[in-house]
Amino acid sequence: MSDEYDTFTGEPRSESVRDRLIGATIRLLADAGPAEIKVRRIADVTGVSTVAVYHHFGGVRELLEAVVGTGYRALKAALENASNADPDPGAQLFAMALACRELAQRNPHLYDMMFGLSTRGTYRYVADAPKDGPVAAFVDAYTVFADACHRLVRAGRITIVDGYVVAAELWSAVHGFVTLEIAGHFTRFPHPVTDVLASMAVNHLVGMGDDRDRAQRSATTAIAWWEIRHA
């Protein structure tokens, strides 16, 4: 597990003041939500003066941009790890869905902020942000997912030949599931991963031209990898 992945829970990567401020903000998001992200509170939790926040980031907006960028880098690390689940690109994609789900469950408020589902004051995710900002960090993470979709296409598993179309459709499905689950909409299902996510993933692959048995094996392989990883 990488340092960036750990940072998603608010554990600082180093003893630098900048990283400590990012970690404190991530923990506040997890514990209290975006409404409580205030300079004084962040400074108190970190054990520094409020001047440090402005010195390192300029203000809360810039601090939150750094937090969102950190979240995307954590997502990228998790997706890269999931890509090693199995040589089967279908299993890789399903493992990536499980990795995304875990990150969202670890810190739902951070996940919401990363994808513009919640805001804090002057901060909102915007598509025309600086090229070296959070949007670029998301593109880096999304590319890992898209690469697995390209491998699925090259393997001849599906009839769609544009891997970017596959990535857009599957990412939309995974993001929808993750968002609805953390909002509490799947509590009626005893096992949301197998009852909803796996079934949806298999159906999507079959709809794209995959063999159902082969698609089911991909899901089963990924779940087995996930269970071993968390044993």
Rank of each mutant, 00 (worst) to 15 (best):
Y5H: 15
T7V: 08
F8H: 13
E11Q: 12
S14T: 15
L28F: 03
L28K: 08
L29A: 08
G33D: 03
P34L: 07
P34M: 07
K38Q: 13
K38D: 07
V45R: 15
V45K: 12
A52N: 06
Y54C: 05
F57G: 09
R61M: 02
R61P: 01
L63M: 04
V67C: 02
V67I: 10
G69A: 11
G71L: 00
R73A: 00
L75W: 06
A77F: 04
N81Y: 03
Q92A: 09
A97K: 04
A97L: 03
A99M: 04
C100A: 13
R101I: 01
N107R: 03
H109L: 03
Y111W: 14
L117T: 09
R120I: 06
A127Q: 11
D132T: 12
P134E: 02
A136K: 11
F138C: 05
V139R: 14
D140A: 15
Y164W: 11
V166F: 05
A168H: 07
W171K: 15
V174R: 01
H175D: 13
G176Q: 05
G176F: 02
T179S: 15
G184H: 07
T187S: 13
H191Y: 07
T194W: 07
S199A: 14
M200Q: 12
V202P: 08
L205N: 07
M208Y: 14
R229K: 14
